[in-house]
C-alpha cells in the first residue's frame, strides 16, 4: 500500500487525509487537470490553422515559436491562464513577423 492518485483541484480536507491514512495510503500523487490542457490544445489548433500555408510557415516562425516555448520553460501544461497567454502571445508575434516579411 502506499500511493493514491487524486485529481487536481480536489480539496484535501483534514477528514479526507485521515480516511486515506486509515486505509494505509502514505503518499498522494496529484493528477493534473486535463481539462486545462485540452482547452489549451483546442485554442492552439484554432490559432495554428492560420499557419498551415507553407509559405507563411518558414524557419523564422519556427524559431520564434521555439523562443517563446523557452520563455515558458517553467510553466506546466495544466496552467490554463498561462497557457492562454503563451498561445495568444505566440499568435500576435507570429502575425506581426509574417506581416513584416510581407507574407500575408
Amino acid at each position: 500500500m502506499g500511493r493514491i492518485l487524486i485529481n487536481e483541484g480536489e480539496q484535501l480536507t483534514e477528514a479526507l487525509i485521515n480516511v486515506l491514512k486509515k486505509r494505509g495510503f502514505v503518499e498522494i500523487e496529484v493528477r493534473p487537470d486535463e481539462s486545462h490542457r485540452k482547452e489549451t490544445e483546442a485554442l492552439e489548433r484554432t490559432v495554428e490553422k492560420r499557419y498551415t500555408d507553407k509559405v507563411h510557415y518558414d524557419a523564422d516562425v519556427a524559431k520564434l515559436k521555439e523562443e517563446i516555448a523557452a520563455r515558458f520553460h517553467n510553466i506546466p501544461d495544466a496552467d490554463g491562464p498561462m497557457q492562454v497567454i503563451r498561445v495568444m502571445t505566440q499568435k500576435v508575434l507570429i502575425d506581426r513577423l509574417v506581416k513584416s516579411k510581407g507574407l500575408s
Binding site: 523562443e67 520563455r71 520553460h73 517553467n74 491562464p81 508575434l93
Partner: peptide, 16 residues
C-alpha cells in the same frame, strides 16, 4: 515578459 521584455534578473516566467 511573454512578449520578450524580460524583467531584470528573471530567468523564468512570472505566473499570473
Amino acid at each position: 515578459s511573454a512578449l520578450g521584455f524580460r524583467g531584470a534578473g528573471d530567468f523564468a516566467m512570472p505566473v499570473v
